[in-house]
Design a binder for these strands. Structure first.
Lengths: 222, 222
DNA sequence: ATCAATGTGAATAATCTGTGAATTTCCCGG
DNA sequence: CCGGGAAATTCACAGATTATTCACATTGAT
């Protein structure tokens, strides 16, 4: 278990780190949002603990940036009196928040709560999702475009389902190859492009949900 | 979707309510067990979230009382250290437990899980099902095609029944082998194909219900 | 304008499924 | 313990579908 601690005050970082290490976590530290984003993208942390008020890049923006490529659980630290409403900007993907001054014991409890949810229950992905006129039934392996069943190839289903499961986050070609094709695929990157093309054709007007991220890969944007 | 939030601490109620409303639920609040019972009996909630330690009437007693007239799914909130009571709780018909301090996101996930589970499990699997001219009597282990009894082999029955029980769900060959043949079967995947073939023959015109999912497996599509 | 990244159509290679038949296993009565 | 038939499993092959590669067109950023 590895956690990333982000705060501009070294004192706070130290306190959190000491408790976390006492609980048996490995820790990394970042002093501002920019650093945090870089580190979070480079390493797969189990939890990120991040202050809101920070120089260079604040916690909200850092969170937003990290969420583009990772789904790491994030716990925000907020000073009492800080805009409380913003804490409920869950569209940012914040998993929990703790108000400063906090008891380290409570923070540890929250870390456990957040990470348990991760490992234990592989998030109960709903079996059926609808985006406008695009219905996706993963359990039944069916896709309906404006009510009409789409007839897609196996790879198209696999690719679409993976994109949808990880919607709104950027996926590189390599990541897609590894997750959809399998770790043992050693072919061309561009194979992904061809399948994206075919998938787009199958989705008709709803091809718009599949966004190209130039220089990066693709994502399903709902 | 309407949920009832029961806790004597207004702060906790507020946090849960804000998360829940963000997720699109309607919410009501109760500050103690007595209130909760009154409200739960008057209104059909989809889920009730209730603290254990409360003035006037504790969570257990409230749960017991509500259960006398309603089957609403109940998620209990318990302070750390009340672990022992957990076992006792499930006997009362508690659907899930969340330990305080909890991650609101986790709580939301549990609400979803519980409400889905409830609605799905509500209808017990009938033992006899008819699809057009295909009658399937699982209890009697008989199948009628256009009124005439089909004479099938044991594996055909097992396979058909499993497919029907899981109709409209995509099933891989591996899954079928594990569930129908048993975890200790170490033979060839394609064995499934052969049995599907024989099953299709036995079903005559109703073979149409057994759909091949290329690259995946099969499913019974009603 | 230029260069790299992406979209696309077509050719080829690889994979998958249905099926008939051969082989093995299982089950029972003798 | 054995034989015989039913059932289960494996096997091989054809036909159809799908995946991959490649070349070229198009797009987008600087």
């Amino acid at each position: 278990m590895k956690i990333l601690i982000v705060d501009d005050e070294a004192n706070i970082r130290r306190v959190v780190r000491e408790y976390a290490e006492f609980e048996g976590y490995e820790t990394d530290e970042a002093g501002d949002g920019m650093e945090a984003v870089t580190m979070a993208k480079a390493t797969d942390y189990d939890v990120i603990i991040m202050d809101i008020m920070m120089p260079r890049l604040d916690g909200y923006s850092a969170c937003k940036e990290i969420r583009k490529t990772k789904n790491t659980p994030i716990i925000m630290l907020s000073a009492r009196g800080e805009e409380y409403d913003k804490l409920f900007g869950f569209e940012l993907g914040i998993d929990d928040y703790v108000v400063k001054p906090f008891s380290p014991k409570e923070l540890m409890a929250r870390i456990k709560a957040v990470s348990i949810r991760r490992s234990a229950a592989q998030q109960p992905m709903p079996e059926r999702i609808t985006f406008e006129g695009l219905e996706i039934d993963m359990a039944g392996r069916e896709v309906y475009v404006n009510g009409q069943k789409a007839n897609m190839t196996p790879k198209e289903y696999d690719l679409l389902f993976y994109l949808v499961k990880n919607r709104n986050i950027a996926l590189t070609r390599d990541k897609l190859l590894e997750e959809v094709w399998g770790y043992d695929f050693f072919g061309d990157d561009r194979t992904v492009d061809t399948h994206i093309k075919m998938l787009r054709n199958s989705l008709g007007e709803y091809r718009k949900f599949i966004v190209t991220l130039r220089g990066m890969g693709y994502k399903f944007e709902a």
